[in-house]
Each structure stands twice: as structure tokens, then as C-alpha cells.
Design a protein around this nucleic acid. Structure first.
Length: 550
RNA sequence: UGGGGCGUAGCCAAGUUGGUAAGGCAACGGACUUUGACUCCGUCAUGCGUUGGUUCGAGUCCAGCCGCCCCAGCCA
């Protein structure tokens, strides 16, 4: 993996300090997704952060599924998450499930009870809520708060044995009902759920809550720096309380950073799901979605995603990153890697009237002028070709140096052609152009007789391979970031445009996920779902930048 | 005065102990060009939410204001 130095951030500074003072000898991080959905680029930020941080200081990173809620989690998600992490280019040191530690967690809970730091509470969920108090008023202590240790031990064991129904009892940490931090008002740390767990099956009917489980999982794994998002800042005192009171061998610490948000897209699991459920997009891997599977299908590369995430930095202020920054990093990555080839997305037939009928020649074309090692290929040329509709204007404005009546342009890799005649149908639509070519201007002959301002791409009509092109625009229009379902009003109705055109014959060999730069258009990737043996389908990953404006 | 955070350019973001505002994206000029691309060169914060204070010196320290985000799941 490439080792670009990543910019400084506050967590890295802490690590440097911890290493210097000897607080830690080895850095251990973890990426702890809950297997209840698909990963998106926001997760990629967390993945890159955790893995890179450990990498940089020769530490290690675990992948840990935080599976403490059997009602929401499924094995299907475990597999897709593993696939996505690997695809992003990372190898975890160890693979854990939070559920691997259920027994130890249970034992720690018994310890808490023995220390008088936890109690079984019979209050209903509703009662717990009402007695929790409000943001400005303290809560009330539960009548069960001072149950004797022996009774708590007995009840907790019976909870585990399944003697009670869901919601009948919970185990609560005994902390402080008057704390200004709601999380410290005797939080529930175990609840009863008679539900099969994707990993432990029916072994358990009590499950630990996040605030209790997460710090213990970190401690059991030997995690030193437990990195999470900003909304958990308020939970840190509880995290520390659990570590302290459970007397774990390792003492991990939690650090928070701002989750990634980007312009012109949606990032929350809820909104993503809505788009999928409402069929506004075509599944979780729709190329317009910021899911890892969507980005992959669209053609974004792991390298580009990593570099993007490294460049946006890690901080604690809520921010919205310009989506165009991601585009920049794919272009940068694909510049050297993607072969250049010509594709006509909106075909306009051109007949080269002075080129002999029945004649054809095969021209040399370099695959990537930025990267000569990629070699040459042969492309056919003959009397009839297709050019881009946009590359002809009957009545052009100033500074238009493509094709127009009387003007001469260069055909990339081929000859100069001059437009002599515009053929139209009965309705006045342009159907064909008649041009003449100059044999002396053949590419590669160092012809210097005259210059043209424009070079356009084309495809030989006789050998053209029909292809479909899918052009994507941002899913969400510019404007206020709408909350709740209101964001549906900002959906871009033109986020997908499907075009039928032609590519060079060599493109018959293109395989799913192969990436190309279509000359003067942008970077495209072969769609793995829509492509058939008959017709390749190309997703536009990103267009080329352009300073051209009419 | 519930508690916890954050505020540096259009967008991200660096800025260890106060010493005179990195970098990237975007944008805009120009050079080059068989991609209106790439590349290269140049421009882009007398300014760090704001008002005061301390200091020879403040983005960094202090005080007060203002604005934004998060928290009352037996979700994570």
C-alpha cells in the first residue's frame, strides 16, 4: 500500500504523545461496525483513519462486529462489510465479534453487582424513561436501586436463565440519577431479548447494551485508542466508568471525530434505505449512492477513496465536504492507469467523400500518452465514421473550434477533415455531414503544413461496437441540506442519463470493472450488472474537467 | 449558568511551549497541448465568530458575548 504521509490531526498528536511518554508501546485500534447495514464512504473515513493510524505507528487494527442487538443484525451484513473493508485495501489483524465476549461481559456484570455498582430493576421501559428526568431536571432513583447484592445476583442469574419475559427486568449501573449527563443516570446495561442471535443462536436471552459492551470489547481486545464519532462524546464518562469499575486489565480510551458529510448526496442509513425502498435508486449498489458497493460499481477505486479520505482530514467540527473533491482523487488515480479510447456517446455520421469506398486502414493509437508503457493499439478508419453531435455546430459562436461548415479539424490519431456539406431530414434535423480529408495530414507523419485549433474523437462506422453509456449527476441538487424526508424534494430528476452510442472494436474485450478514459469525455467503468455479451454498458465515473463554455 | 462539543478563505484543514496564518479542493488569469484534458506558472485570509484584557508581540493565554451541533432508546 502506498504510504503518503497523512496530515496531522489531533488523534495522531495524542498517539505520538502516548508513545513518547510510554503510556503505550503498541497502538491498537479497531473498526467496529454493527452488522445491520451496508458500509458507505462515511465508514470508509473511519476505516482509513483506524487502519492508517495503527499502520503509521506499527500497531494493529482489528475488525470487530459490534453485534449486541440480535433484533437488527444479520450475517449477510457481516459478509458484505468484510468484503468492503478488504476491497478498500485493508487487512485486519484479528476478527472479533462483540458476541465473542458475552461470557466475560456477564462475569464483569456480576462483579459490578457484587461491588454494589449495578442492580436489577423491575421498572418498565416507560417508567425508566419518566424517572430519568429531563435535560434540566434530575431523575428519580428507582425503588429497586438498593436491592441487596444477593438478591441482585439471584435475579440477574435468573434473567440469564430465561425466567423473565422481554422488558420485565433490566440490569442497571448504579451511578447518579442527578448527573447533568443523562448517560450517567443509572443507564441500562443489560436487557432481556428472547431472540436468536446471528452468532450465538439461542445461547443468550440477555444482551449487553452498547455503553457497557463497547468499552469492555475494547479492553478485552487490548485496544488502546477507541475512535468513534462526535455524538458519543457524552458517553465517554460512562465508557471510563465501565473501564474503571470493571477493573479491566487494559484501559482503552475513547476519542471522537466528526463523521463525514458530503454535498449533493445522502449519508444516513435511514435516508439511504428510503431511496432504496422507494425505488428512487436501483438497490444498495446503485452507482449514484455513496455506499462502498455503489462507489465500486460506479468505478471509483480504493486508492482514490483512501486518498480522498486522507486529504479531508480528521477534526471535531461538523463539516460538509465538497463532493468534487472525491472526483479530483479518482481523476488523479485513473490518469496513469486507465487506457484512453474513443467513444461516441451521441453519434453523428460523417461521410468522407474523397476517401475511396471499400478502403480501410488500421491506424496506430497510443493507449495512454501520460503513460507510454501502456503501448499502442490499432484502430480502423474508413469512409464512414461517427463523431459526437456536440462537435458540430452549423452556426457556431466565436471560439468554437470544432466542426462547422468550412472548418477543418483534426480527427484524433487520423487525418484533418473539412466540413463541406450538412445533410438534413425533412424536419431540418442534421442527419449526416459530408467532409473531405487531406491524406497529407495523417497522424504520425509530422505534417506541419497548417494547424487546426480543434481535435475531435470518432469511431469507424463499419467496425463500431454499439454500447450503452450511463451518465451520472449528483443525486441531490444544490441547496439547503433538508432534514427528515424533506430531502426527497431535492432529488435530482436527471441523476441518471442513458445513452446509446459506439465504442472502438477493441472494447469488445472489456471486462466488468475495467476502466477507461473515453477521449474528451471522462473516466468510465464497465458495469458488472448491466453488461451483456451483446452490448457493453459503461458507467461514467467522472467527467473530465473542462474550461469550454459557449 | 442543564451537560458535552465546535467556530481559521467559497469547501475541507494544519497551526506541540504566544514570535508575525501550511496544504488540498474549487475558482480565476497565463504558458503548453493531436484530449477546451493533463502538466507548468501565477492570483486567491493585514486575517483566525465577536468584543475587550494580558503582553514588546495573541489564531494560540484570560473574561464576556454571538452562532451552530449533540444528549431525555430496554438502538449503535
Amino acid at each position: 500500500m502506498e504510504n503518503k504521509p497523512t496530515q496531522s490531526n489531533y488523534i495522531k498528536n495524542i498517539i505520538v504523545e502516548d508513545l513518547k511518554t510510554g503510556k503505550h508501546r503498541e497502538i491498537v485500534t479497531r473498526f467496529p461496525p454493527e452488522p445491520n447495514g451496508y458500509l458507505h464512504i462515511g465508514h470508509a473515513k473511519s476505516i482509513v483513519l483506524n487502519f492508517d493510524l495503527a499502520d503509521e505507528f506499527n500497531g494493529r487494527t482489528n475488525l470487530r462486529f459490534d453485534d449486541t442487538n440480535p433484533l437488527k443484525e444479520e450475517t449477510e451484513y457481516v459478509e458484505s462489510i468484510k468484503e468492503d473493508v478488504k476491497w478498500l485495501g485493508y487487512e485486519w489483524d484479528s476478527l472479533f465479534f462483540g458476541s465473542d465476549f458475552f461470557e466475560e461481559m456477564y462475569n464483569k456484570a456480576v462483579l459490578l453487582i457484587k461491588k454494589g455498582k449495578a442492580y436489577v430493576c423491575d421498572l418498565s421501559a416507560e417508567e425508566i424513561r419518566t424517572t430519568r428526568g429531563t435535560l434540566k431536571e434530575p431523575g428519580k432513583e428507582s425503588p429497586y436501586r438498593n436491592r441487596p447484592v444477593e438478591e441482585n445476583l439471584d435475579l440477574f442469574e435468573r434473567m440469564r436463565r430465561g425466567e423473565f419475559k422481554d422488558g420485565e427486568k433490566v440490569l442497571r449501573a448504579k451511578i447518579d440519577m442527578a448527573s447533568p449527563n443523562l448517560n450517567m443516570r443509572d443507564p441500562v446495561i443489560y436487557r432481556i431479548a428472547h431472540a436468536a442471535h446471528h452468532n450465538t443462536g439461542d445461547k443468550w436471552c440477555i444482551y449487553p447494551m452498547y455503553d457497557y459492551a463497547h468499552p469492555l470489547e475494547d479492553a478485552f481486545e487490548g485496544v488502546t485508542h477507541s475512535i468513534c464519532t462526535l455524538e458519543f462524546e457524552d458517553h465517554r464518562p460512562l465508557y471510563d466508568w465501565v473501564i474503571e469499575e470493571c477493573e479491566t486489565e487494559c484501559e482503552p480510551h475513547q476519542y471522537e471525530f466528526a463523521r463525514l458529510d458530503m454535498t449533493n448526496t445522502v449519508m444516513s442509513k435511514r435516508k439511504l434505505k428510503l431511496l432504496v425502498d422507494e425505488k428512487i435508486v436501483d438497490g444498495w449498489d446503485d452507482p449514484r449512492l455513496p455506499t462502498i458497493s455503489g462507489l465500486r460499481r460506479r468505478g471509483y477505486t480504493p486508492e482514490a477513496i483512501r486518498n480522498f479520505v486522507r486529504e479531508i482530514g480528521v477534526a471535531k467540527s461538523n463539516s460538509i465536504v465538497d463532493a468534487r473533491m472525491l472526483d479530483h482523487f479518482v481523476r488523479e488515480d485513473l490518469k496513469m492507469k486507465a487506457p484512453r479510447t474513443m467513444a461516441v456517446l451521441r453519434p453523428l455520421k460523417v461521410v468522407i467523400t474523397n476517401y475511396p469506398e471499400g478502403q480501410a486502414e488500421w491506424l496506430d493509437a497510443e493507449n495512454n500518452p501520460e503513460n507510454p508503457e501502456m503501448g499502442l493499439r490499432k484502430i480502423p478508419f474508413s469512409r464512414e465514421i461517427y463523431v459526437e453531435q456536440d462537435d458540430f455546430m452549423e452556426d457556431p459562436p466565436k471560439k468554437y473550434f470544432r466542426l462547422f461548415p468550412g472548418n477543418e479539424v483534426r480527427l484524433k490519431h487520423a487525418y484533418f477533415i473539412k466540413c463541406n456539406e450538412v445533410i438534413k431530414d425533412r424536419d431540418g434535423n442534421i442527419t449526416e455531414l459530408h467532409c473531405t480529408y487531406d491524406p497529407e495530414t495523417k497522424s504520425g507523419t509530422d505534417f506541419t503544413g497548417r494547424k487546426v485549433k480543434g481535435t475531435i474523437h470518432w469511431v469507424d462506422a463499419g467496425n463500431a461496437v454499439p454500447a450503452e453509456f450511463r451518465l451520472y449527476e449528483p443525486l441531490i441538487l444544490d441547496g439547503e441540506k433538508e432534514e427528515s424526508a424533506g430531502f426527497l424534494d431535492n432529488i435530482n430528476p436527471n441523476s441518471l442519463e442513458i445513452l446509446q452510442g459506439f465504442v472502438e472494436p477493441a472494447m469488445r474485450e472489456a471486462k466488468p470493472q475495467d476502466k477507461f478514459q473515453f477521449f474528451r469525455h471522462g473516466y468510465f467503468s464497465v458495469d458488472p450488472q448491466k453488461t451483456t455479451g451483446e452490448k457493453p454498458v459503461f458507467n461514467r465515473i467522472v467527467s473530465l474537467k473542462s474550461s469550454f463554455k459557449i
